[in-house]
Simulated scan of single mutants.
Amino acid sequence: MIETRQQLDEAREACRKMVTKRAALSAGSSVIPLPGLDIGTDVSILLALLPAINERFGLSEQQLAQLHPNRKKYNFIAITGVGSRLIGKTLTREAVTHALKRVGVRVATKSVARYIPFLGQALAAGLSFSAMKMLWNSHIDNCYRVVSEVLSQTTTADTTAPRQPPMMS
């Protein structure tokens, strides 16, 4: 569980490094001119990477289920405020389809461009890298905002809660 801003910033940086590596893998699969390989690779990376990002931020479905009820409430309010379908839930086909539609034009363009000799493959790789990096970095930003909001809410709640006087024995 992330408890400080420093831990939150470290989680974001670790996830961004993970995203860059996976986006490069997506770009590499775009160069190979086999029908469906690039989309299949993108979906499989998406299915593995999004839960890993959620978990790194303490926002997986299992992690949220184990939270104290007050902390869980803050998390769900923040998740709803961000409007993400991918945080704190098991990934479904609908959620993955929705995520890919967000970068649909780039994915469609890369699928067509890779059949143009030489330049097309480079263009497809660049489009794949940028589309996947944009999608995943957007998810990281959403997770960051959720946890940041929860940290500020729990810090405020801790400082405004009435203090009990010490018990005298």
Rank of each mutant, 00 (worst) to 15 (best):
I87H: 05
P117H: 08
R93D: 10
S60K: 03
Y74V: 04
Y115A: 00
R114I: 07
L67S: 05
A48M: 14
L50D: 03
G81M: 13
V105Q: 07
P69Q: 06
A99N: 10
L100W: 03
R56Y: 00
L59T: 03
I79R: 10
S111T: 11
R102Y: 04
L67Y: 07
K72G: 00
G81T: 09
T92I: 00
E61R: 15
G88L: 10
S84H: 11
P117A: 08
G81R: 14
K110F: 13
A99S: 14
G83D: 05
L49T: 11
L64R: 04
P69I: 05
I116L: 12
I87L: 10
G81N: 15
Q63M: 12
Q66K: 13
G88K: 11
K72F: 01
V103H: 11
L119S: 08
I77D: 13
N75H: 15
Q62C: 04
P117W: 08
Q62W: 05
R106D: 06
I79E: 08
G81L: 10
T80V: 03
L91R: 05
L100E: 07
L50N: 06
E61A: 15
F118I: 15
H98V: 10
R93W: 07
K73W: 01
I87P: 05
L59S: 02
R93M: 09
R114A: 05
A95K: 01
I87Q: 06
F57N: 01
K89Q: 12
T92E: 00
G120C: 08
I53M: 07
Y115L: 01
R56N: 03
A108H: 04
E55I: 00
L47F: 06
F118M: 13
L50R: 11
A95Q: 04
R106S: 12
G81V: 10
V112H: 05
E55K: 03
L119W: 02
A108S: 06
I116E: 00
R102K: 12
A99L: 13
I77A: 13
T109W: 10
Y115T: 01
L64N: 02
E94L: 06
A113Q: 00
R102G: 14
E61F: 06
L47T: 06
R106G: 12
V112Y: 07
A113R: 00
E55D: 13
A52G: 09
A113S: 02
K89W: 01
L50M: 15
G81I: 09
S111N: 15
G58K: 03
V105I: 15
V103I: 15
H68D: 15
T80D: 13
G81K: 14
H68V: 07
L67V: 04
Q63F: 04
I116S: 02
R114N: 12
T92V: 00
L100G: 02
L50H: 03
A52H: 09
S111W: 05
A99G: 13
G81A: 14
K72D: 02
A48E: 15
K101P: 03
A78Q: 10
G120M: 08
P117E: 06
V112P: 03
E94R: 07
F57Q: 02
L119D: 02
A95D: 05
L49G: 06
G120F: 09
G120I: 09
Q121Y: 02
K73R: 15
